[in-house]
C-alpha cells in the first residue's frame, strides 16, 4: 500500500476544513451555520500551522533535564506555527463571541436567522 505521511494527511485535512469553512460561510443561509463554518475555518488554519512545524520522528519541543542540547534543535518539532496557533485559538473564541452577540441582536430585531432575509432585506 502507498505510504502517506502524517504531515501530508493532516495538511490535506486542514485544506479540506478551510475549503468547507469558506464554502459554508459563503453558501449556507443560516447565520448560526455560518458561525459554525467560521469555527471550522479557524480550526483548519490552526491545523495547517501545526502541521507546518511537524518533524517526522521528532520529539516534543520541551528540553527535559539531562537531554542533549546539541541534538535538541535537530530533533524537536518547530514551534513557529504552534506559537501562533495558541493566539489564533484565543482570537477565534473572541471573534465567535462577538459574532454570536451580533447574531442574537439581529435575531431580536428581525426575528429570523436566514442570512438572505437579515442582510439583504429591507433597509431600515
Amino acid at each position: 500500500m502507498i505510504e502517506v505521511s502524517l504531515q501530508l494527511l493532516t495538511f490535506l485535512a486542514a485544506s479540506l476544513l478551510i475549503i468547507i469553512g469558506i464554502a459554508g460561510m459563503l453558501f449556507l443561509d443560516n447565520l448560526i451555520k455560518k458561525l459554525i463554518s467560521f469555527t471550522l475555518l479557524s480550526d483548519g488554519v490552526n491545523l495547517a500551522l501545526v502541521s507546518l512545524g511537524y518533524v517526522p520522528g521528532g520529539i516534543v519541543p520541551i528540553l527535559e533535564p539531562g537531554a542533549s542540547i546539541s541534538d535538541f534543535p535537530k530533533e524537536a518539532a518547530l514551534i513557529f506555527g504552534p506559537g501562533i496557533v495558541l493566539t489564533n485559538i484565543v482570537i477565534g473564541v473572541s471573534t465567535t463571541a462577538i459574532l454570536a452577540a451580533l447574531i442574537i441582536m439581529l435575531y431580536k430585531r428581525y426575528g429570523t436567522l436566514k442570512a438572505s432575509k437579515v442582510l439583504k432585506g429591507e433597509m431600515e
Binding site: 502524517l6 504531515q7 493532516t10 485535512a13 448560526i32 458561525l35 459554525i36 469555527t39 480550526d43 490552526n46 491545523l47 501545526v50 502541521s51 512545524g53 511537524y54 518533524v55 521528532g58 520529539i59 516534543v60 519541543p61 518539532a77 504552534p82 496557533v85 495558541l86 485559538i89 484565543v90 477565534g92 473564541v93 465567535t96 463571541a97 454570536a100
Partner: peptide, 26 residues
C-alpha cells in the same frame, strides 16, 4: 491530531476551548 503532531500543549488548549467554550457560545 495536535497531540500527534508534537504539540501537546495546543492539544490541551484545543480540547478545552474547542469542546467547551466554542460550542458553549454557539
Amino acid at each position: 491530531l495536535f497531540h500527534a503532531l508534537l504539540a501537546p500543549d495546543l492539544g490541551l488548549t484545543q480540547a478545552v476551548v474547542g469542546t467547551v467554550l466554542m460550542p458553549g457560545i454557539i
